[in-house]
């Protein structure tokens, strides 16, 4: 019963209203055409203009023209899932073929080739900004797992889609990468590296945690980064797929979900109060080994407050849970101390 929470506190729209209004006003006041010389993220209109100009636009030369010189790339691309989709276009954008992503090619053709004359190129060598490159991908990839890309941590830190994805060719995974990590079977193709290696390039701290003796089956290829996180952004904390840390954990560990007759509030509030899901050196992925993980909170009275030398049942085997084994919650009428 959330009796102490005011009604106002449950009205997010009311809370949201002031800054919705202020942002709206600010956006209106400051609206102006984008500067040509600034690396400014493109607007939604610009995106539209970049990749879907009017039919009258004569700058498009058609994929057939591109293939004249780029047969190799065409061969590689048409065997990718994206190539297969665009071979049977469903939208005007898909019908553009090469120019759907690389923008109209007339200038490139008239110049007799040259990378500099390709209006839209991808990767580090590109003169286009990351936002411009990403905007091309966002033309089609707007829904599904990409719905919350805008403003997500990876977007706002300037990550390009092509930093992780490679569209036009089959990716050869290094033998060492394949040997060190397994990943679950997936029909996602076109990643530059397989998971978790791909994510560990930047999240290097996690690489160390995955090596711990107490771990979930990441190294064994049964779960991976995207089992819990959506790198394209979610509205949830830490880009989790589920709304909270607990909902994420409980989607597999459903038995701990409850509701229980006797609940352990810190367990129900956040699994990460006690556990570190990326790996630890303590049993059961505990952040601190027993009994200290329990002692951290239970400092009030009686036996939890005993320091106790090594020869104590609290200190060996399952620690406190030698007795309090229903620590995640109990539905037994005698389970108020989590003994049943």
């Amino acid at each position: 019963m959330l009796t102490k929470i005011s009604r106002a506190s449950r009205s997010p729209l009311l809370t949201l209203l002031p800054f919705l209004v202020s942002f709206g006003v600010a956006a209106g006041l400051n609206a102006r055409p984008p500067a040509q010389d600034a690396p400014k993220p493109p607007t939604e209109q610009e995106k539209t203009k970049a990749v879907a100009p009017s039919a009258a636009d004569g700058d498009y030369v058609g994929s057939e023209t591109c293939i004249t010189c780029h047969q190799d790339q065409d061969h590689r691309f048409k065997n990718t899932p994206m190539g297969r989709v665009m071979a049977h276009p469903r939208t005007p954008e898909e019908a553009r073929g090469c120019e759907a992503c690389h923008a109209p090619g007339r200038a490139h053709v008239e110049a007799g080739g040259g990378k500099e004359t390709i209006p839209m190129r991808f990767g580090k060598e590109s003169k286009n900004s990351v936002a411009e490159q990403n905007a091309v991908c966002e033309t089609c990839h707007t829904r599904g797992t990409h719905l919350f890309w805008k403003g997500s941590p990876h977007e706002s830190r300037g990550m390009a889609c092509v930093d992780c994805h490679q569209v036009k060719q089959v990716v050869n995974v290094a033998l060492s990468s394949e040997g060190r990590y397994n990943s679950p079977l997936s029909d996602v193709r076109g990643l530059k590296k397989s998971q978790p290696e791909l994510c560990l390039q930047c999240h290097q701290m996690r690489r160390a945690q995955l090596q711990r003796s107490s771990h979930m089956p990441y190294r064994e290829g049964k779960v991976t980064c995207t089992s819990c996180h959506n790198p394209h952004g979610t509205p949830n904390p830490k880009q989790l797929i589920q709304s909270t840390t607990n909902e994420n954990c409980l989607s597999c560990h459903t038995e701990r979900r409850g509701p229980f007759l006797w609940e352990h509030p810190p367990v129900m509030e956040n699994c990460a109060n006690c556990h570190e899901p990326h790996g630890t050196s303590n049993p059961q992925l505990l952040k601190t080994r027993m009994p200290r993980v329990c002692d951290s909170c239970h400092v009030a009275t009686r036996h939890p407050t005993q320091a106790q030398p090594l020869g104590s049942i609290k200190n060996f085997n399952r620690g406190c849970t030698n007795c309090h084994s229903a620590i995640h919650g109990s539905n037994h009428p005698s389970g108020d101390k989590f003994l049943r």
Partner: peptide, 17 residues
């Protein structure tokens, strides 16, 4: 609820609740 705006030059502002 997330609101992202690029109304200012070279700036992306975000408000999320």
């Amino acid at each position: 609820f997330t609101l992202v705006t690029t109304a200012w030059k070279s700036v992306e502002a975000k408000a999320a609740y």
